[in-house]
Nucleic acid binder design. Structure first.
Lengths: 174, 174
DNA sequence: CTTGACCTGTTATGATATTACATTCATAGA
DNA sequence: TCTATGAATGTAATATCATAACAGGTCAAG
């Protein structure tokens, strides 16, 4: 099974926060993120080309993690190149620019919903609907760094992810 | 490059803790872990077969993360089956029994140095020598769960990993 | 209008992981 | 002791994820 064949996100449910799980004006959330992305890349002198923009749009539309080949298959159907590097390069660019994140656990990518905010993200991955929410990991990261310091280890990058059930799927399961 | 072709661990260096980075009586640490593994599986009625034992030994000998194919190549040279499932199944068994951990960031596996202790591990991965140390992640995990709870997310499993430089490699780099 | 950096397309291949099924092994119960 | 049974292993085939290398195109600074 490819990531794109997994069950789609159920966006209905109780509003409780600004996370992906919560019901929200997704169209606005997407266009807003895209606009910020344009501004951020322009400010850095990075080029937001058609493929890159389209990949970001795809990730934003889904609001969950997509595998590189899922992204690629959409690009192909829109006339872009159909070889893996096309997708991987665009995704790599977005991650470098802080516009997307790689979810290690899933070998997949998700759009960043806090682009430009200099944040320490943790990811909450629902094993049922596969929605990925970006949570604040400041405290967890600080705890990890404290522990690392005791060992004399210098932390450069962290991967903090949780697998479990999102609020909507908990309700449905009950 | 396969994981096994990466630079081997330099085990020399100042003793500072009971972590993998520190100089320690590795032969003892290995045989001890193996003995505990035997006891734990026996207690649970799980079968510690030759392949499984050998895979655990291999992971313990290295004291770093090995890819499934690295493990497999060693098994082959010792007369075990030479197809991927041989390695993956043994590794899966060890992970289920809490005798090894999967390092997401590396798509690799490392022996658990606290088997049977019911711990919340974080992994400190040196990007230079590739040694993987298991640190306590209780505090980081608690922080992550607190944040998840705010979103109504139920955490089932966590992945907490740090990439950086171990004490030995920091010294050598400086 | 040239040059150089960057981006894109494509080929080829490498690395990681799983499904499916046949065979062998260990052990509990007859 | 002798099976019956479930577990473990061996093997083939294939799916999935990722990168190296190079050719050609685009664009903006000089």
């Amino acid at each position: 099974m490819t990531v794109s064949e997994q069950k789609a996100t159920d966006r209905a449910g109780p509003a409780a926060s600004d996370l992906a799980f919560a019901h929200h004006d997704h169209a606005h959330c997407s266009t807003d993120a895209l606009a910020r992305a344009e501004a951020l890349t322009a400010a850095k002198g990075a080029r937001m080309t058609p493929v890159r923009r389209r990949v970001l749009e795809i990730l934003l539309e889904e609001h969950r993690a997509l595998g590189a080949y899922d992204v690629l298959s959409r690009l192909v159907s829109e006339g872009f190149g159909n070889q893996p590097p096309v997708a991987y390069r665009a995704l790599e660019f977005l991650v470098e620019q802080g516009l997307a994140h790689r979810i290690q656990r899933l070998n997949a990518f998700a759009a960043c919903v806090h682009a430009g905010e200099d944040h320490a993200p943790a990811f909450l991955i629902c094993r049922d609907c596969h929605t990925v929410a970006e949570a604040e990991a400041g405290a967890a990261r600080a705890a990890l760094e404290t522990e690392a310091a005791r060992a004399g280890f210098l932390v450069e990058r962290t991967t903090i992810e949780a697998m479990g059930l999102c609020p909507n799927c908990r309700t449905h399961a009950a």
